[in-house]
Amino acid sequence: MKPVYITHTSAIIPQHQEAGALLEPLIPDERQRFAVIEPDYTTVIPPMQLRRMSRVLRMGVYTGMDCLRKANLARPDGILTGTAKGSMTDTEKFVKELKSYDETALNPTPFILSTYNAINGAIALQTGATGYNQTFVHRGSSFEAALYDAQLKLHTVQDPQHYLVGCFDELTEEYFHIKDKVGYWKKDRDNSLPLWQQNDSPGSIGGEGAAFFLLSNHSDGAVAAIKRVFTFYNTGNSAPLASIQGQIEREGWTAADADLLVLGYNGDPADDPCYDQVRNLLGNKLPVLGFKHLCGEYETSGGFALWLTCQLLSGNDLPEAAWYQKPAGQDFRPRKIVYYNHFRGVNHNLVLLEGL
């Protein structure tokens, strides 16, 4: 397929985004979880609408609308998102009311807002967009499925079009507690050491976030091109190396062509070996950009990874702590980028990008 181009980005993340000091000072996790730094939503969302929105709905609508505002675009030609859980706050509230009211006289609002496509609908209503609108709920491949669908749609059109593609997931107290019971989170993390140096104990860090991208079939004003998106299912604790190499070769690249690896090291000994295998495949001397030690582990953390990569390609300097393996030289601007991430050994994702 033809590449699609990233022209604008927006994200709500657990780190600072000040101009000239991106990710500084770095915010460490507390209680083995990351919570996003929420912006002033009223700059984008009317206050009367804001008061009726749940937390993740605010995050998603703000990020999507902010992305359009940066592009000075009134409405997109299509809206595609990926989420694994949707609004956990509204889901939990509705389930609690089912029990409290014995399934009678229920308030339908939490149920309506808990649906996965609530954010897509809210953005479409606010912008008047009547084009293609799709939400993907594919667990750890939700965001990448949205990227792939956007590439499919833009491949079929000749006129310039712009698709708003994003992802969102939140971490609630109840969800964090339940996953803690089954060993998802680290119990004994040392904040003085990088996350990837602590894979001698099980678990990772809980995370959340929202990220949106404006994708176009034309390269005007773009910072990066998405060349290929591919997902693999249930390969276990081994990375699908033959398939990854095959996709790279189908793009006309070789392992030696890669300038940067973006890998999702999360400090869990059950998950990190996959990333080591990909490094061995493509070269241990390549610069490696990590991201889960900055945003935490969640199903759509790939949105944060892509946003962070776009910041690098836009000329922003990343702090040394962001790198698993730092590049040589001061002015590092990669050309060919390989992003690989997986969630719990079930959903594996590969994205080939090219800096412009």
Rank of each mutant, 00 (worst) to 15 (best):
N120C: 05
K153D: 01
G140K: 10
K85P: 04
D77Q: 08
N120T: 00
M88R: 13
L147F: 14
L147D: 10
F111N: 13
P108R: 11
Q158T: 15
I119E: 03
R69H: 07
Y148K: 15
Q126S: 14
T91L: 06
A146K: 04
F143I: 03
Q151M: 15
D102E: 15
R75T: 08
Y132W: 04
A129P: 00
L80Y: 00
Y148S: 14
K99E: 05
L152G: 03
G78V: 01
K153Q: 12
T156R: 15
N107P: 01
T81D: 00
S141Q: 09
K93Y: 01
N72K: 14
I112N: 10
D159C: 03
N117E: 12
T83F: 12
F136A: 07
P160H: 11
G121T: 09
T104I: 09
L98D: 02
A146R: 03
S87R: 05
K96C: 09
I119V: 14
T83R: 11
A122Q: 10
G131R: 02
D77F: 11
Q134E: 12
Q158M: 12
R139M: 12
Y101Q: 15
G131Q: 03
G121V: 04
S142C: 06
A129Y: 08
K85A: 10
A84H: 04
E97W: 07
D159Q: 13
I112K: 06
Y148L: 14
G82E: 07
A150S: 13
T130L: 08
N72V: 08
L147W: 13
T135P: 00
Q134I: 13
Q134M: 12
A124T: 05
T91A: 02
L106G: 08
K85G: 13
R69M: 09
K93I: 09
V95C: 14
E92P: 06
R139H: 15
L147H: 07
A150F: 06
